[in-house]
Design a protein around this nucleic acid. Structure first.
Lengths: 335, 335
DNA sequence: CCTCTCGATGTAATCGAATTCATCCGTAGC
DNA sequence: GCTACGGATGAATTCGATTACATCGAGAGG
C-alpha cells in the first residue's frame, strides 16, 4: 500500500504538497498538481484513514444503535440514516443492541474511544457510560435520539407525536362505533409506549369509554402480538384491537384467525408504523404511518448540526404521522 | 479526553507501562498494575482508537455492503453478521448500495483506505476498485461474499445450493400435479438468480414440462412481484407461481387477489427466503427457507480466517436450505 | 536597484498509542 | 563474591497523515 511518502518521492515533491493537492488543490501550482495527481494515480494511493483521523480528530463515522435491525421499522429508519449520512460524507457503524443494556453500553464505549464522531440511538435508554459526556458537553454532545421523545434524555431527537397519533387511531375506531377496544402496547419502559398509551386513554376518556379499554403489554414482536391478542380474545372479547406495532398486529391477525374469527367482520385491527408489508396483509392493515425515512434524515441532520457547532439548543423535531385506513377496520358487527 | 500520557503522569510511570497494563498485564508487576488501573479509572481513560489503529494497522471493523437494508432477508443476514462480528470483537460498518454500482465502488474505496479490515458483500458484483487487491493478494484478500455463488468472483463465500433449492420447490409443485408454472426470477445479472433458474429448468425438463414454464424476471421487490404476476395471470394462466423471493410472492399474492382469484385454490404460490413474515401471510406462504443467521455467521468466520492468516484456499460454504410447505400450495383445481 | 509582498513549496512538529531495545536491579548459581 | 539471567520498567522510535511556520524566488513599487 502506497503512502504519502511514496507519492511525494515519485512526484519529486514534499509530503506537504501531496497533502495539499488532495485537500486544498488551489494552493498548488497547476503543473505541480498535475504531476502529483499522476503519481497518485499510478501508485493507486489512498490516504491511510487512521493517520488522517488521528491528526484531525475526526472519523467521519456515525454510530447507530438499534434495538433490532431485523425489524422492518428500524431497518427503514436506518436506510434513511445511511442515505443522509452518506450524502454528508459520513459512514454508518451499526450496532444491534437486541434491547440489551450491556450491548448498549458496549457500543457507547466506542463513542468514548472516538471510533465515531457521534451516536444516534433508536432505543429509549441513554447508556450510562455517556452520562458524563452529556453532563460535560451539554447541547454539544454528539448524541441524538430517534423515535422516542423524552425530555429526560437530555439530547435532541426526531419522532412523531405519539400521543396524538394513537389518539387518532382510537378516534377512528370509536368513529366506526367500537366501544370495547383491546390495546396491545409496547414495553412501558419506553416513553414512546407510554405516550401512545396516554393518547389512547385520553381518547377513551373523551368518548366516555375508559371502562371499555383492555390494555395489555407486548414487546413489539409478532409473537407477543399473537400471544396477547389470543388472551384478549379469550376474555371479554373486544370488537377491535389496536397494536402499537405492525408486527404485533400481524401476530394479532393470526390470533384472530386461529380463534376462528375474521378481520374486520368480527374484530377490527389497527397497527402502528406502516411497514411496507402492512398493505399487503389480508386484509390490508389500517395503521398509523410513520415517516421512517424522514426520521432517519432528521436525526442525521440534528447530529451534523451538533458536529458542525451549529446547534445552539436541544431540538425536538416532531414529524408528521398519518392514519392510513385500509381493510382491517370496519364497524363492529353487533352495532 | 485523557490520553495515555495523562495516565502515565498520574500513575508516575511511563506510557509504555500504561500500554502494557492495558494490553499485556502479565508483564507488569502487581503493585504497578494496580496503580495504573486506578489512574485509568479515575481519569476515565479510553485509548484513542485512531492512534491504536495507526500503530497496529487494524481497525477491528468489518464493512458490510448490502443491496437493500430494508429488505428483511438482508437485514436478517446482517443481524447474523453483526452478532458474529461483535462476538469476535469486531464492529460493523454498514453500506446500503441500493443495487447501484457507484455506491459499491464508494464503499470499496473504504477498504482501500483501511477504514475496515475486511469486506463482506451481499451483492453479486465485486467492485472494480478491488480487482487489483484480489489479484495481488489472492486467497488472502479480506473479502468475502454472502448469498451468491460464483467461481468468477475469486473470493470465498457462504450460500445455499440455489439450483437444488429451486428444483425442490418445482418438484413440490409438480408433485401436487401442477403442469403450467409461472416463474418470477430475480435480475439475471446475479448468479444466484441464474442458478435458481437453472434448477427450475432442470426440474421442468426432468418432468417433461419444459413447455409449461413461463419465466419472467422481477427485481426481488414487492412491486415487481405484483407487476409480473399480474402479467402471468393475464396471459395463459399458470396454476402455480414460483417467486425467487418472498417479497415478490407477497406482490404476487396481491395480484392473485386483484385478479379475483384465490390462493391456493386457483393459483398455488411458492416464495423464496422464508422471511419471518412468510408464515403470517394469508395463506401462510410455502417457501424455501434460507438460514440467514448462519449465512451471516459463516461469512464472518470466513473473513476472520482470512484476517488471521488461517485461510489456505478459497472456501465456498454451502449451507442447508429447506422447503417449508405451508398453505399457499395445493393441487391444481382442474386436476 | 533595493525592499516588500505574495505565491509556491519545503521542513518539521504533532496527533496518541504500541513496541523495540536498553537499562536497572535483584537473585540464583557457582 | 562475582557473573549471569530474567523480571520490571523507561526512552525513544514508529505508524502516516496534516499543518503551522519557514523559506525561496519573482514581480511590484518606490
Amino acid at each position: 500500500m502506497a503512502t504519502i511518502q511514496d507519492v511525494a518521492r515519485d512526484a519529486g515533491v514534499s509530503t506537504a504538497t501531496v497533502s495539499r493537492v488532495l485537500s486544498a488543490p488551489e494552493l498548488v501550482a497547476e503543473a505541480t498538481r498535475a504531476r502529483v495527481t499522476a503519481s497518485v494515480e499510478r501508485l493507486g494511493y489512498q490516504p491511510n484513514f487512521a493517520a488522517k483521523s488521528l491528526r484531525t480528530l475526526k472519523t467521519e463515522k456515525i454510530l447507530v444503535t438499534v434495538p433490532d435491525i431485523s425489524n422492518p421499522f428500524f431497518s427503514q429508519v436506518i436506510r434513511g440514516v445511511e442515505e443522509a449520512a452518506r450524502t454528508a460524507g459520513y459512514s454508518v457503524l451499526l450496532g444491534d443492541t437486541r434491547h440489551e443494556a450491556d450491548r448498549e453500553e458496549e457500543y457507547a464505549a466506542m463513542l468514548l474511544r472516538r471510533e465515531a464522531d457521534g451516536l444516534i440511538f433508536l432505543g429509549h435508554r441513554l447508556p450510562e457510560a455517556l452520562a458524563p459526556m452529556v453532563a460535560a458537553r451539554g447541547v454539544r454532545t454528539p448524541i441524538v435520539n430517534g423515535c422516542e421523545y423524552s425530555s429526560e434524555l437530555g439530547v435532541s431527537g426526531a419522532h412523531i407525536d405519539n400521543a396524538r397519533a394513537s389518539a387518532e387511531a382510537m378516534e377512528h375506531l370509536y368513529g366506526l362505533g367500537h366501544r370495547r377496544v383491546g390495546v396491545i402496547t409496547g414495553p412501558l419502559a419506553s416513553p414512546l409506549s407510554r405516550d401512545r398509551l396516554e393518547g389512547v386513554r385520553a381518547s377513551a376518556q373523551a368518548h366516555g369509554q375508559a371502562a371499555g379499554l383492555a390494555v395489555v403489554a407486548g414487546d413489539f414482536s409478532i409473537d407477543s402480538g399473537l400471544r396477547e391478542a389470543t388472551a384478549l380474545l379469550a376474555a371479554d372479547r373486544p370488537s377491535a384491537i389496536f397494536c402499537f406495532s405492525d408486527e404485533m398486529a400481524m401476530g394479532a391477525l393470526e390470533a384472530i384467525r386461529r380463534a376462528g374469527l375474521s378481520c374486520p367482520e368480527d374484530v377490527s385491527l389497527v397497527g402502528f408504523d406502516d411497514i411496507r408489508f402492512a398493505e399487503f396483509l389480508n386484509p390490508p392493515l389500517t395503521t398509523v404511518s410513520q415517516p421512517m425515512d424522514r426520521i432517519g434524515h432528521e436525526v442525521v441532520r440534528l447530529l451534523l448540526d451538533i458536529l458542525s457547532g451549529k446547534a445552539q439548543a436541544l431540538e425536538h423535531v416532531t414529524l408528521p404521522h398519518r392514519l392510513v385506513v385500509r381493510g382491517s377496520t370496519a364497524p363492529p358487527a353487533a352495532a
